[in-house]
């Protein structure tokens, strides 16, 4: 506690990417992922262009390569699953290192790996350069219903408190000799979850009272009114545009 860092996914830096308005980054990331998703899997060169684009932006954002690589590990479970496809898929079979695999399956694996890596890379880039409150503000400016962004904001704010409360409860249980090993010992955990629910509900009531006390009347006030400039939109559009053109060309070639 007391540290200035906001979130484990965020990298504190002063790069042009960090400075971009959050709604611009959100829109660009979404468009980029969309372009990657529609790129035909046979167009390996298009994925190379996409990867180079993400790499370039990561450089520009001064995100440490090791940081990005470590965060990319999240897709490993999915990739592991993808590696099964060549063995179980039907169709024409070829020999790779003396093992017979399905060619269609191989393409399928490649497809998942390439798109998952690029998608995760973009997400890491977005989260690494945009703090959570900024992200929420960006969503708000992209006309996501304010009820949803408000719920998300409260979740972000109170999740840590809830986790801390849960931690204290577990400590208190352990301190009194509770060491669950069997299913029939689960009752205290269920009771604890119930207590936690009641406490959260009560906190909700108190927070609501605090909001009313400061003039809340049903809508969150607009506090930060800075809107993204045209230059910001253009700068951010360059990445998804590159991927989009690559995807379009690849689609044209395939067709």
């Amino acid at each position: 506690m007391g540290a200035g860092h906001a979130h484990p996914l965020y990298v504190h830096e002063h790069s042009p990417v960090h400075r971009l308005a959050p709604e611009v980054k959100l829109a660009a990331a979404f468009a980029f992922v969309l372009a990657v998703a529609v790129t035909p899997r046979e167009a390996i060169w298009a994925f190379a262009i996409d990867a180079a684009t993400v790499g370039l932006v990561i450089r520009l954002a001064r995100l440490p390569v090791r940081f990005v690589a470590a965060r990319l590990a999240i897709i490993l479970p999915f990739i592991a699953f993808a590696f099964l496809i060549p063995f179980v898929a039907s169709g024409e079979r070829i020999d790779v290192l003396g093992v017979s695999v399905s060619q269609v399956g191989l393409w399928g694996t490649w497809n998942i790996i390439a798109k998952a890596t690029l998608g995760a890379g973009v997400s890491i880039l977005l989260a690494g350069t945009t703090e959570v409150p900024q992200l929420l503000r960006g969503l708000e400016r992209l006309r996501v219903p304010p009820t949803l962004t408000t719920i998300a904001a409260f979740m972000v704010r109170y999740l840590e408190l809830l986790a801390a409360e849960l931690g204290r409860m577990r400590t208190a249980m352990t301190a009194r000799g509770y060491d669950p090993r069997w299913l029939w010992q689960v009752r205290p955990i269920a009771a604890g979850a119930g207590a936690l629910f009641i406490r959260s509900y009560e906190r909700g009531e108190r927070v609501h009272a605090a909001m009313l006390s400061r003039g809340y009347s049903g809508a969150m006030p607009t506090i930060d009114e800075r809107v993204a400039s045209r230059r910001e939109w253009l700068a951010a559009a360059s990445a998804p545009l590159t991927a989009g053109i690559a995807a379009a060309v690849a689609l044209a070639v395939v067709a």
Binding site: P133, A153, V156, R214, P221
Partner: peptide, 22 residues
């Protein structure tokens, strides 16, 4: 409980909440 009072993502936004409602 200050945690009931501070519900916005940053201190600045939280302090702005009241006057913005005004």
């Amino acid at each position: 409980d200050a945690d009931d009072q501070l519900f916005m993502p940053t201190v600045r936004e939280d302090v702005a909440f009241g006057p913005a409602n005004l």
